[in-house]
């Protein structure tokens, strides 16, 4: 992408940053007495829609509609979209296993590979239609689910391939924010796999398959720690850059996920002052996804009468 396009794109992002949700707004949202009141509050910020799902879908689509106006080639942001491809491939494989019709497969429209292509490739077992990074994992996952009827293992194969693809996309981007995003995404996934696997006494073979290599964690040490138990995982993490997240990890996986999301937001905040690189655009996408996730948590908390304090413990820090 040429420098001139960054300048135009960043200037537009600067204007759009004005409409990002602030921590104060999220606080107001948490205080909503009902879901309807929360939706009314969101409407004041231009989050239109009839129900929570449509509002959040509209917002997700609006991110990519806006970014499409800024860049000709969205492949620079593959690192964000790969998880949607992962979701679609898992859905297509489960759909094929359960004998569902293609139109009943719950896919996400915003993905690198057209969801219809993914469904067709799986149903016809013609994996050459898929991107190279997905071909082998799709074949293996499909075979696994039909052979063992184990959906979890099938998902694990796809998750691992996705993490590898995210790592490759992050390195390929040569944009610090995107590399950082891919690294934190992979590391947090690895840590969660290690902790969950330690709780269920998973085997070394499982950890070797599920845990993806990354730059900030030593895979061998993490696998050994996971085999020894959750405490060993925490002990290992104390020697890594994720040491500050260990107290959260001891509380729960979701508390640790929140810590990782907040860590990413902290990392990308300097992009607010970056005038002309791809960084602010990537940071904006991340910030928007972060606020959609936060609004989903708040609405779900209100729906389930979790109480203000309980919801507040789950919400993410905002970019602005």
């Amino acid at each position: 992408m040429e420098d001139k396009q960054f300048i135009y794109a960043v200037a537009r992002v600067r204007h759009h940053e004005l409409s990002l949700l602030s921590d104060q707004f999220i606080d107001r949202l948490i205080h909503s007495e009902s879901v309807k009141a929360a939706l009314d509050t969101l409407n004041t910020q231009g989050w239109d829609g009839d129900d929570p799902d449509s509002i959040l879908n509209n917002q997700e689509n609006s991110i990519w509609d806006f970014v499409s106006e800024l860049v000709d080639d969205l492949s620079v942001f593959d690192v964000f979209l790969l998880k949607n491809d992962c979701h679609n491939l898992k859905a297509a494989i489960k759909s094929s296993y359960m004998g569902l019709k293609p139109e009943d497969t719950p896919v996400l429209d915003r993905a690198i590979t057209d969801p219809a292509t993914v469904i067709k490739a799986v149903s016809e077992k013609d994996f050459s239609r898929l991107p190279e990074s997905m071909q082998q994992s799709a074949a293996d996952a499909l075979e696994e689910i039909f052979r063992t009827h184990d959906g979890h293992m099938s998902d694990t194969i796809i998750d691992r391939a996705t993490l590898d693809a995210i790592r490759a996309a992050g390195k390929r981007s040569q944009t610090p924010v995107l590399s950082l995003y891919s690294e934190v995404t992979i590391a947090s996934s690895d840590i969660k796999i290690a902790v969950r696997g330690a709780d269920t006494k998973a085997s070394r073979e499982y950890f070797e398959l599920a845990i993806a290599p990354c730059d900030t964690l030593d895979k061998d040490e993490l696998v050994s720690a996971a085999l020894a138990g959750k405490d060993a995982v925490c002990e290992y993490l104390m020697r890594t850059k994720y040491a500050d997240g260990v107290p959260e990890l001891k509380k729960s996986i979701s508390a640790f996920e929140r810590w990782c999301d907040n860590l990413l937001i902290d990392y990308i905040k300097p992009q607010i002052h970056n005038p002309s690189t791809l960084g602010p655009v990537a940071a904006y996408i991340l910030a928007r996804q972060n606020e959609i996730k936060t609004v989903r948590i708040v609405i779900s908390g209100i729906e389930n009468n979790l109480g203000d304090e309980s919801i507040r413990e789950r919400v993410r820090a905002m970019y602005v």
Partner: peptide, 8 residues
């Protein structure tokens, strides 16, 4: 370019 981005 930056000005056009803002005015858009």
């Amino acid at each position: 370019q930056a000005a056009a981005g803002v005015v858009t």
